[in-house]
């Protein structure tokens, strides 16, 4: 079953074409990893899917519904998608448990007790149960990002968008966040993620998509794209990344 369908999406900021006709499909339980240099359009693509940016052309379908239709209720669409940002963006004035249960209670109408119990269960399974009543600034970056992921999956979204979620973390904290993504994959989440972690992309992705200059240059299974890229641009990008 197709969860997400992106058809010829274009986005322009000023006179800069950030997305120049992107086509992409995601099936249920599929993990697709976007790679590419900064400014290649990965984040913008994720933001248009979540309706944080309006597309200038093309169509995006979520579960078969055209979410780029002007008549669509953007809040309802966003409630169906879970997003995790590079800089966590937890709400600093709310305790961890309130951060995690906010959408469940206020958007999905889950009773407070149920939301609380489910939030504690999820936090507990990640070893963060003891932090439930703390405020975000008491947690390490890795812990904050894992809380942000719990916040995003609390309401069982149809699709998870992860936007360079390890880019702001120290190397020793990256591992704990990636472990959680592995866990999500094993439970069947549908994930579209942008990342600079190539070895992780190779391990976890069902499909890797290489973007450059607002276009998808090449996509395929990780072994093929990493070991035998067809396009010269892909090979060049991979060579540059590997030398770091």
């Amino acid at each position: 079953m197709t969860v997400l369908e992106v058809r010829g999406v274009r986005k322009r900021f000023g006179d800069h074409d950030v997305l120049q006709g992107v086509d992409l499909e995601l099936d249920a339980h599929e993990v697709v990893v976007l790679i590419g240099a900064s400014g290649s359009g990965k984040s913008t693509l994720l933001r248009t899917i979540n309706l944080l940016e309006r597309v200038d052309d093309g169509q995006i379908l979520l579960g078969g519904d055209d979410i780029t239709d002007p008549g669509v209720d953007a809040d309802r669409v966003r409630a169906r998608i879970g997003v995790v940002f590079q800089h966590f963006n937890l709400f600093p004035h709310l305790r961890i448990i309130d951060n995690v249960t906010l959408a469940a209670r206020r958007v999905h109408g889950m009773p407070k007790d149920t939301a609380h119990a489910r939030g504690l269960e999820l936090l507990g399974s990640l070893g963060l149960g003891a932090k439930a009543l703390d405020y975000p600034d008491r947690l390490s970056g890795g812990q904050q990002q894992r809380v942000a992921i719990v916040r995003a999956i609390m309401t069982d979204p149809e699709l998870l968008l992860l936007d360079e979620i390890t880019s702001a973390l120290d190397p020793q904290l990256i591992g704990e966040v990636l472990d959680l993504v592995r866990q999500l994959k094993s439970t069947g989440s549908t994930i579209l993620m942008a990342t600079h972690e190539m070895s992780f992309a190779r391990e976890v992705a069902d499909r890797v998509v290489f973007m450059q200059g607002g276009r998808i240059v090449e996509s395929g299974p990780p072994e093929q794209l990493f070991d035998a890229p067809v396009e010269p641009a892909t090979a060049e990008f991979l060579a540059r990344v590997r030398h770091h």
Binding site: R80, V83, F85, N89, L102, R106
Partner: peptide, 16 residues
């Protein structure tokens, strides 16, 4: 602004 963005991403309305 990232706080607004995070909130809207969860499906909260402008008023919420």
């Amino acid at each position: 602004p990232s706080q607004r963005m995070a909130a809207r991403s969860l499906g909260l309305t402008h008023a919420q």
